[in-house]
């Protein structure tokens, strides 16, 4: 097997994550799709690290993981505080700025 096949798999996962962000209305599932995209990019970084024979890609993937954790924590707190005021976790109901 070509070791670069992981790149194609990562591209597919990233595409599925993008489609999930576009299609889903539940804010939490949108967040999960973003996690999927971050994971796909991490898989790409790890694969390139292996192909290049250096560990810099793995270190970058590590940083991406830390940023993803911080982002999830803040994002879920925002979703919760919106849910407290609007009683809904749907992205369609957050439309106060629309009018």
């Amino acid at each position: 097997m070509n070791p670069a096949n992981y790149l194609i798999l990562a591209a597919l996962l990233f595409t599925i994550g993008t489609a999930g962000v576009l299609v889903r209305r539940n804010a939490i599932v949108v967040f999960m799709s973003i996690e999927l995209m971050l994971n796909a990019s991490n898989l790409t970084l790890v694969t390139f690290s292996r192909l290049h024979g250096t560990l810099d890609g793995q270190v970058m993937a590590f940083f991406v993981m830390v940023v993803a954790a911080a982002e999830v924590v803040i994002g879920l707190a925002i979703i919760l505080s919106i849910f407290r005021t609007r009683r809904s976790a749907s992205v369609d109901d957050v439309n106060l700025l629309k009018y």
Binding site: E35, R50, M65
Partner: peptide, 22 residues
């Protein structure tokens, strides 16, 4: 892909902590 550290961090942080948070 010879990244055992990231593999286990993935299981602990993502599948453990972040999904529990979700």
């Amino acid at each position: 892909q010879q990244a055992p550290f990231l593999g286990f961090v993935q299981i602990i942080v993502y599948a453990g902590a972040i999904m529990v948070l979700f």
